[in-house]
Every structure is written in structure tokens, then in C-alpha cells.
Simulated scan of single mutants.
Amino acid sequence: MADRLDTPLTTRKSWVPKVDLESEGVGRVAEAIARFTGTPQFLVWLSVFVFGWLVWNTWGPENLRFDKVELGFTTLTLMLSLQASYAAPLILLAQNRQDDRDRVTAEQDRQRAERNLADTEYVARELAALRLALQDVATRDFVRSEIRDMLEELQASREEEDEELAERER
């Protein structure tokens, strides 16, 4: 024992190995069991087992029966209760692990949706900027109409000059 409070105790070696019940392996085993107990194959095998048990202990040789009909197949009832008492927590454990996976998937989907929204908003802003910029750019039709107007003005001014020259010469 430590003489001082600021000195930690030394740990003792244990003869029993420490098992990490929160490990990934335990969870995978629980999921595998829960997945198997939910299959038709499990129900068929369990039904065959129970049927065989009932047939053997009802019509089998009297000295080889191990579960009495008169007692209501107590051992079978206890075994099925034990199986159910283990199956329920294993199913809940598998469900909790699936909930955790679903939570991670939902978070990743949310992040992906946020990125998509940001990308969409960026593209929309760029498109709006391009539209604004294109309003300032002269289009082909606009340039043609401006050139046509200028040509008409030039022609009109030449005609005026020609008329003035013709009047001066007279």
C-alpha cells in the first residue's frame, strides 16, 4: 500500500484475462447470431430440434428419456427460455450497432448535401455574374444595328455636303 497519497498504487496481475466487451469482434459475433436467429433456416432447425426432443421424450425408451411429459417438458422450457433470454439482448446489441452505422451514414449524407448545396449556390452565383456581364457585352445584332445607324448618318451627312457643294457651285 502506498504510504503517500500522491504515489499511485501498483497494479496487481490478474489470473483472469481481461476481455474487452466493447470490442468490434464481440459486436460482429452478436450481429452474426442475431442475423442467423432471424432466418427461416434457424426457425426450421429450432423446430426440428423441438420436434425431435418432444418425440424422443414422449415415445422413446422409458429409461432413456431425460425430460418427463408429466412435468410438462420442464428442461425444454428452460432451454427455450435461456435461448430467448440470450437472443433478445443480442438482437438489441445488433440493433444499436446498426443505429450507430445509420447515424454515421446520415451524418455523411448531411455533409454531402451541404457540399452539394454550396456547389449549387456557387454555380448559381457564377451564372448570375455571367448574365450581368453579358448584358454589358455588345451582341452581333446590336453591333449591326449601330453600324447601320452610323452608315445612315454618314450617308445623310454626305448628301447634305453634296447639296451644299451643289448650291455653292450655282
Rank of each mutant, 00 (worst) to 15 (best):
N96M: 15
N96Q: 13
R115W: 00
A87I: 09
A94T: 06
T105H: 11
A88K: 12
A113L: 05
Q108Y: 02
D99V: 10
A84G: 15
D102C: 06
L117I: 05
A87V: 09
R115Q: 10
I91K: 05
D102S: 13
L90D: 04
T105I: 04
A87T: 08
L90K: 08
R112M: 00
L82H: 12
L93D: 06
I91W: 04
L82E: 12
L92K: 15
A87W: 10
I91T: 06
N116E: 10
D119V: 05
Y86R: 05
A106R: 15
D102W: 01
A84D: 01
R112Y: 00
T120A: 11
R110M: 00
Q111I: 11
L90V: 10
R97C: 02
R112W: 02
R97S: 08
L117D: 02
V104Q: 07
Q98A: 11
A94W: 04
S85W: 10
Q83G: 09
R101C: 12
L82G: 15
R103I: 04
L117F: 03
L90H: 07
R110F: 09
T120M: 00
R103Y: 08
E114V: 00
N96T: 13
E114C: 00
E114N: 01
Y86K: 13
D119E: 12
A87C: 14
A118R: 03
L82N: 15
R101M: 08
A88Q: 13
Y86S: 07
A113C: 00
R110H: 10
R115K: 13
Q108L: 06
Q98S: 14
R110V: 06
D102P: 04
E114L: 12
A118N: 00
R97N: 10
S85L: 15
L90R: 04
R115N: 09
R110S: 05
R103D: 13
A94Y: 12
L90W: 11
A113K: 14
R115H: 03
R97F: 02
S85A: 14
D100P: 08
P89W: 09
L92W: 12
R97Y: 00
Q95L: 11
A84P: 04
Q111T: 04
L117K: 07
A113W: 03
V104M: 11
Q111C: 02
I91L: 06
A87K: 06
L90T: 10
R110L: 05
R112Q: 08
A118H: 01
A94D: 14
N116L: 14
D100F: 07
D100S: 12
I91Q: 06
A88G: 14
D109Q: 14
Q83Y: 07
N116C: 02
T105R: 09
T120H: 03
A106V: 06
R101P: 01
V104F: 07
R115G: 03
L92I: 09
R115P: 01
L93P: 05
A113T: 06
L93Q: 15
A87D: 05
L117S: 04
I91G: 04
Q108M: 12
R110T: 06
Q98E: 14
A94F: 13
Q95V: 02
L117W: 04
T120Y: 03
Y86Q: 07
L117T: 08
R103C: 08
A88H: 13
A106E: 15
R97Q: 13
S85Y: 10
R101E: 03
D99C: 10
R101I: 05
A94I: 08
V104I: 15
A113F: 01
N96K: 13
D102Y: 07
R103A: 05
